[in-house]
Amino acid sequence: MPSETKPIDAIDRKILRALRRDGRLSNNQLAEEVGLSPSPCWQRTRRLEAEGYIRGYTALLDQEKLGAPETVIIDIMMDRHDEAALDNLGRAMAELPEVLEVYLTSGEYDYFIKVAVNGTKGYEEFLRNKLYRIPGIRHSRSSFALRCLKQGGAPIPD
Rank of each mutant, 00 (worst) to 15 (best):
Y57D: 00
T105K: 10
H139G: 02
E83C: 06
N118H: 11
M93N: 13
T120R: 14
S142V: 04
R47I: 02
P69C: 05
T71E: 11
P155W: 01
V99G: 11
D62P: 12
A68I: 09
P69D: 09
A50Q: 13
M78E: 04
G56P: 07
F126Q: 06
I76D: 01
Q63H: 10
Y109A: 09
R133D: 08
G67D: 01
M78W: 01
G119V: 07
D82L: 01
K65H: 09
G119T: 06
S143I: 07
A94Y: 09
A145G: 12
P69N: 08
R141K: 12
M93S: 15
Y109I: 04
L96A: 09
T58V: 07
Y109N: 15
E51Q: 11
N118A: 15
P155T: 06
P97S: 02
G122K: 07
T105E: 06
Q63S: 14
I113C: 07
S142M: 00
E49C: 04
D79N: 14
Y123H: 13
G67P: 11
L104V: 09
D82I: 03
G52D: 01
G119L: 07
L61E: 07
R138G: 03
L61Y: 10
L127M: 15
I73C: 09
A145I: 06
L89G: 07
F144I: 03
S142N: 11
N129A: 05
I73T: 15
M77P: 00
N88D: 15
P69K: 05
V115M: 06
Y103W: 07
A116F: 08
K130E: 15
I113M: 14
D110C: 04
A59V: 12
R44P: 10
F112P: 00
P155H: 11
I54K: 00
A145S: 09
K150M: 06
E98D: 07
E49Q: 09
R44E: 05
V99F: 10
R91C: 02
M77G: 09
S143M: 13
L48F: 03
L96P: 05
T71R: 10
E95K: 15
S142K: 00
L146V: 12
L86N: 12
A84W: 13
L100P: 04
F126K: 06
V72S: 13
H81S: 08
L104Y: 13
R46Q: 10
G90N: 15
L104F: 14
F112E: 01
N129S: 13
Q63Y: 12
L86V: 05
L146K: 06
R91W: 04
I74M: 10
L86Y: 12
S140D: 09
R46P: 02
K121W: 04
S142Q: 05
L60N: 06
K130M: 13
Q63V: 01
E83W: 07
S142C: 11
I76C: 09
F144Y: 13
F144S: 13
P155N: 02
T71L: 12
Y57W: 01
I73A: 08
E49W: 00
K65F: 02
L104M: 03
I73G: 03
L104I: 07
I54L: 00
V99Q: 08
L104S: 05
D110L: 03
T71N: 04
G56I: 00
Q63P: 15
D82S: 02
R46A: 10
A68N: 02
N88I: 03
Q151W: 05
R55D: 00
D75S: 13
C148N: 15
Y132R: 14
R80F: 14
Y111A: 15
L149N: 10
E108S: 03
